[in-house]
Simulated assay, not measured.
Amino acid sequence: MSETGKGWKTALELGPILAFFVGYLLLRDRSFILGGTEYSGFILITAAFVPVLALSTLLLWRITGTLSRMQVVTLVLVVVFGGLTVWFNDERFFKMKPTLIYLIFGAILGIGLLRGRSFLRMVMGEVVPLDEEGWMKLTRRFCLFFFALAALNEVVWRTMSTDAWVNFKTFGLTAAIFLFFMLQGRLFREHGPSQD
Rank of each mutant, 00 (worst) to 15 (best):
L27C: 10
L77W: 03
R30F: 13
G36M: 09
I17P: 02
R117M: 03
G106F: 15
E154A: 14
G65R: 06
G125P: 10
M122W: 14
V156N: 01
P16L: 06
V123A: 06
A164T: 10
R158C: 10
D196F: 15
F180G: 08
R117G: 02
K137D: 12
T99H: 00
M124C: 02
I33R: 10
G116H: 03
T74G: 13
G41P: 06
R189N: 12
A148F: 08
E13F: 05
I33K: 05
K6E: 12
E132Y: 07
T99W: 11
I177C: 06
Y102D: 04
L100Y: 08
L55T: 12
Y24N: 01
V80H: 01
L75E: 14
W165E: 05
L138D: 08
G82A: 09
V50Q: 04
R28S: 13
F21G: 04
V22P: 00
G7H: 08
L152H: 12
A164D: 04
V50A: 02
Q195E: 06
V78S: 02
V128G: 06
I111T: 07
L173C: 06
H191S: 03
T139E: 00
T99C: 12
V156Q: 02
L120Y: 03
G7A: 03
I104S: 10
G192V: 00
L114D: 00
E91K: 14
S118P: 11
L173H: 00
F21H: 03
A148Y: 00
V22K: 05
W165I: 09
R189W: 07
T170D: 14
F88R: 15
